[in-house]
Design a binder for these strands. Sequence first.
DNA 1: TTGTATATATACATTATTGTAAGAAATAAG
DNA 2: CTTATTTCTTACAATAATGTATATATACAA
Lengths: 111, 111
Amino acid sequence: MKKTRLGEFQELILMTVIVLKEKAYGNEIQRELEERLNERLSVGAIQTALKRMEEKGFLTSKWGEATQKRGGKRKRIYSATPYAHQVLQEMKDIRARLWEAMPQLHTNNLQ
Amino acid sequence: MKKTRLGEFQELILMTVIVLKEKAYGNEIQRELEERLNERLSVGAIQTALKRMEEKGFLTSKWGEATQKRGGKRKRIYSATPYAHQVLQEMKDIRARLWEAMPQLHTNNLQ
DNA sequence: TTGTATATATACATTATTGTAAGAAATAAG
DNA sequence: CTTATTTCTTACAATAATGTATATATACAA
């Protein structure tokens, strides 16, 4: 477990970025993830996580346009790098194999 | 993300404990996980993780018998608590829904 | 031209997770 | 009864992940 992978929170943010595609910017990620986790998250925590993941090569970003509704600062749109996709897939596979190997009662619902 | 859940490593150990059932003790967990991750792990890291997870209510433990082969200290056999199962399942479900929501190219292989 | 909504940026702080190393306990073999 | 082997224990250390608070930027609207 040497080479840093993704923390739990970071992994969730990363997946959310992929889900949101062109809409993947701070506040929208917050809303989406809060709904999925059914739990409040701070914008700050998400913004800093995004920056750090960019530094670590999991995300890239570009400027988007300002909100049409009312005004506001331009959005920074994030997207996952190939490396991030690879790491996500690896984590998924390892967990999937473990689930398969677990004695029943866990192989129920979803996927 | 307040109430502490599981770190990535801890989650993997927890799943391995469930997979190994009555064989879930330090060294065996190490072997199993090293094989699955294709990566060396230190026994110490695993032993301390097990202790901590027990303190946090994810695991319980009991004494097993000594190795038949050659001798050695008695094994401490771990097993997952209902709470641990619940947390694992929740994490699985949240990730599964995210995978479902992701644009293709990721919905391939396994599960 | 001021207010307000929408966003990002960043410095700082805290907490959690993971890792190391040395040693102690238990047991079977010789 | 001494040794080799297996395993756990513990104290300590390092690093990584997460959170907070405040400031700054932008744009529309009145």
